[in-house]
Design a binder for these strands. Sequence first.
DNA 1: ATACTCCTAGAGTAAATACTCTAGGAGATA
DNA 2: TATCTCCTAGAGTATTTACTCTAGGAGTAT
Lengths: 192, 192
Amino acid sequence: MSAREKILDTALKLFNDKGTAAVSTNHIAEAAGISPGNLYYHFRNKEEIIRELFQRLNTTWETYQPLPQDRAPIINDLEAVIKSNYQIIWQYRFAYRELVALLRQDAELRANFLAVRQRGYEGFHQLLHTFSDAGAIRLPDDPQIANELQEICWLISEFWLTSLEVNGRKVNEAEMQRGVNLIRRVIQPYLA
Amino acid sequence: MSAREKILDTALKLFNDKGTAAVSTNHIAEAAGISPGNLYYHFRNKEEIIRELFQRLNTTWETYQPLPQDRAPIINDLEAVIKSNYQIIWQYRFAYRELVALLRQDAELRANFLAVRQRGYEGFHQLLHTFSDAGAIRLPDDPQIANELQEICWLISEFWLTSLEVNGRKVNEAEMQRGVNLIRRVIQPYLA
DNA sequence: ATACTCCTAGAGTAAATACTCTAGGAGATA
DNA sequence: TATCTCCTAGAGTATTTACTCTAGGAGTAT
């Protein structure tokens, strides 16, 4: 593995474990088994490492194809989508825990992340209508109600893992399933 | 105002504005218009200041009486409760934004906060049953479903403001009302 | 062989940060 | 007046942090 990759992997692990504020570039270099000078050869500073990690995260969001392309989606596919979301968020949990602070202190980071997130939100909108067209759910006629439901589901999927961590719960398959159940509970009154 | 109060008020403001990591004790002292030595006369370190702010927050949660005591509650009272919650969370928003990190690095803080939060959660449980008994809502017979609904409402009320901030929205009365509407949307299918 | 590019180590530095220490002022009490 | 407690200022220090600089190794092209 190249030094650059080692730095990014190590930084991600340390950030997830201790938070960005508690991890210095020297810590990262030491944990990655390289010299500080070498780290600064590959990255200008800590901010740039964070940016690169967000770039990886963005790429993950943009490339993953959650739905099967060969048939119409059924309601269980929605569960699979949500679980995939949780997996990704858990992989980059430092980012979601510290989102407000990280986005505030780096305008470029903010712009990129929000653009990708916006596309994700629109994709989710599409997804719901795909399910609706396929007859899996019955969206309310009032589009504002549908929007509110979507907003609730989005909020749960974005903050469920953080909420688990606040409660001091281990994050595992079963807890993720509970998060899926909550979202299911929200749309349950609107199932076909 | 005493120096101690000045320190706490200033720290709260700076933490809310810039996050705890970006604010040093020297910053706090300077912004409060006192000397660093004086700050350290009143507090052993930054951690102790944060603890004291959490203590204030805990006291706020424990003392506020959201419901009118002189009559049975109606559904609009629930809105008032949620709005009060948002006000308190907004006042101490640094805490809710950085909750995972702050609780992890201070076991005592964690224990106190979670205990108060647990009582709040139980109070919310009571509240829902009070509404149910008063005929304002009709909770589902299956207690697990009722619990899931409660969990969803709790998650929204705890993370709605953070979600607004991530979206770059100004936090104001109207946006708080939208957060209230989302919770209302969750329980709407179960209104009497 | 020479040179050139890419990468790496590690010593070194300026600034920031958390925290200490000493000297002393203000007001109450003896 | 003397003393005692409580509070305050501000200089000073050890450590950490971000970041720089120089010397050189490993391949590859000439």
